[in-house]
């Protein structure tokens, strides 16, 4: 199975990836192989297909108690390409949207 070009373009846009034409041909094939694999899995009959979790298990909850982490900032920011005045710096993104 091959993924249509417009689907590749759509996924690339959602991921903010710039792809060359060659990339697109390669990815269309790779993603197609993944879909084929999933189709093979889907071909098997599973009694309860909604079972994404063990039905009895539930989410353990955490008491609402703080653990202060302010000493970590400088350490963590050593991993960032750029940080100033405590803020992480990234290229400006024009289209707005924090949800």
């Amino acid at each position: 199975m091959t993924i249509p070009n417009d689907t590749i373009d759509h996924i690339a846009r959602l991921s903010h990836l710039k792809l060359s034409d060659q990339d697109k041909i390669r990815l269309a094939k790779n993603l197609g192989n993944i879909i084929t694999f999933i189709d093979q899995v889907n071909a098997y009959e599973i009694p309860n297909p909604q079972a994404s979790h063990t039905q009895e298990a539930s989410q353990p909850l955490r008491p609402d108690e703080p653990f202060r982490s302010d000493l970590e900032r400088d350490l963590i920011q050593q991993n960032a390409p750029a940080a100033e005045e405590g803020l992480y710096l990234v290229p400006d993104v024009i289209e707005t949207s924090s949800e």
């Binding site: 750029a82 100033e84 005045e85 803020l87 992480y88 710096l89 990234v90 290229p91 400006d92 924090s98």
Partner: peptide, 12 residues
Amino acid sequence: STHSFRPNQSGI
């Protein structure tokens, strides 16, 4: 995000 916190850069 603080847009254009530095020229062409946002601060997060």
